[in-house]
Amino acid sequence: MSNNPSIGAVASFVGLVREVAMTLEHYPGMTENSIRKIAEEARSRWQVIDCTVIHRYGDLRPNDQIVLVAVASAHRGEAFAACEFIMDYLKTRAPFWKKEHAAEGSRWVEAKSSDDDAAERWRLRQGATKP
């Protein structure tokens, strides 16, 4: 993202493990494809100059970083929107599953309907936020 004078804004998001250790399972192959597609979708909606997504899998401990999304754009509005869009879509479309390991045992994390709602609003806003 460096050395490009048209970049005026870089927005980034880092997701961290909260309180409980976990193992992240994923679907090798589909994971990479889905992240690529989500990034392409973001590029088609906003003027993204560059973007990076890193998502971890395997065993993670509290405070570990799970995911990084960074988006470079000419202006902050586009960078913020594309970054949030990528995160919302990752949450609902990338094949990762969290299994938490608490003292009383391990359990698969249930999907949250609020995550579906967060992704859905981008569908409703399609076009509206496009430059």
Binding site: G15, L24, H26, Y27, G29, M30, N33, S34, H55, I66, V67, M87, L90, K91, T92, R93, A94, P95, F96, W97, K98, W108, V109, E110, A111, D115
Partner: peptide, 29 residues
């Protein structure tokens, strides 16, 4: 469900040699 690593609806067609996957709603990010 996913067919050839794309999430699909139940009505999606399958053909010989396809890779079909079944999994719970995703919880990454």
């Amino acid at each position: 469900a996913a067919v050839n690593q794309d999430m699909v609806k139940p009505g999606a067609a399958i053909k010989p040699g396809d890779e079909v996957a079944f999994f719970p709603p995703v919880t990454g990010g």
